[in-house]
């Protein structure tokens, strides 16, 4: 991935993260489905992005970037995969 795609590089209009919703969070995606691109603004944290999408914090069990669990204060980079999980039971 090009360095210019890093968050805060000043190329926000071209930059985005790939959001993947798991479990029951699709209902907050406003018809975007389980996976979609989301524009990334300078300095945005994971929590900012979830709030912007409209996913209530209480509905989120865990967030990961590229497969690694992260806190909501993390700032993703353009091109990152933002994985958002709701609590899971059994089956």
């Amino acid at each position: 991935m090009a360095l210019s795609s890093r968050a805060g590089s000043g190329q926000e209009s071209q930059e985005s993260v790939r959001v993947r919703l798991f479990g029951e969070l699709v209902r907050f995606a406003a018809g975007r489905g389980y996976e979609f691109e989301w524009p990334l603004a300078t300095g945005q944290t994971v929590a900012d992005i979830l709030a912007a999408i409209g996913i209530p914090e209480a509905e989120v069990w865990m967030v990961a970037i590229n497969g690694t669990k992260v806190p909501g204060t993390t700032q993703p980079r353009a091109g990152d995969q933002l994985m958002v999980f709701s609590p899971v039971g059994g089956g």
Partner: peptide
């Protein structure tokens, strides 16, 4: 029921 499998692995 396996919709949460990746989440469990990630956790």
């Amino acid at each position: 029921t396996a919709s949460g499998l990746v989440g469990l692995s990630t956790s």
